[in-house]
Amino acid sequence: MGMTGYVDFGYVTFIALGAYGMSLGITYFYQVEGLGIWIVFIGFLLALLLASLSALLEAFIALRLRGAYFAIACIGINEGLRHFIEGAKLWGGSEGLIFSGSLIQAVGRETANQLTTFWADLAVFIIAALAAFLNIHYMRSKIGYALTAVKEDEDAAKVMGVNTTKYKTIAFLTSGLLGASVGAVAWGLKLGYVFPGDVFVIHYTVECIVVVLLGGAGTLLGPVVGGLIYGLSKYWLAIIWPGFQLLIFAPIIIIIIVLFPEGVVGMLKNRVRGTALERYLL
């Protein structure tokens, strides 16, 4: 999420694992008596667990590799994980997991419908609100200052007394948990299936980078805002004008990126520079 300048590239894996966590929860627990709607929460917890593990792994790598090497390592993890899932026939292998039927069996058709539409959208907004809250909290605390230092110059940060390992791990975990939450509800729960080829493709990395650019690279709130704009408009365009969404979407994205080269949040940030609002938008 641009917090340390590293996290952008790991974001895809976080979202993918979030989608997988939700799918696994529903697929493997839907027949357990008495769980009912709780399988969604189990799925959510699995999403958070998987993302935490991968966030720790990527933080570990980020402590050793910088810049382009780190980006390549992340794409490597992404591809590696995908081939591992397909090759080892883990979690449905290349067939993926289709769980919309399981969800209906567990909670009934009507509840399942509400879950995948209203509640999933609401959850995305709650996650965005949570991200905004964390943003404000971080920026007001030493964490925000430490992350700025790490992002700008790690060696300088270290000799200033910043424990770069600790703050990078915080950044990756925060980003991983938020990314997985979005993946779990907006990709997993909402679609009702997950295919490794879908969630791990490079195209998806590109989509994530678009999201980051749209919101504003290097800002904490940027990717969340970008993700919201991108995710929701893609989704609603698909409903209003099915089949044409990508056709309309491409020029819209180009226009936004041309108009706001620093992203929506970056643009706002410049506008409020020097005012009290500024620190909420790092």
Partner: peptide
């Protein structure tokens, strides 16, 4: 390195390396 700073070891670099995207005041506050 990060544990030496709290003991009382400060330094500057050959080529100055302030945190460019932060204000002067924020740099010094860090």
């Amino acid at each position: 390195a990060y544990r030496r700073a709290p003991l009382g070891l400060g330094r500057t670099f050959q080529i100055p390396r302030p945190f460019g995207s932060a204000t002067v005041r924020e740099n010094v506050a860090i």
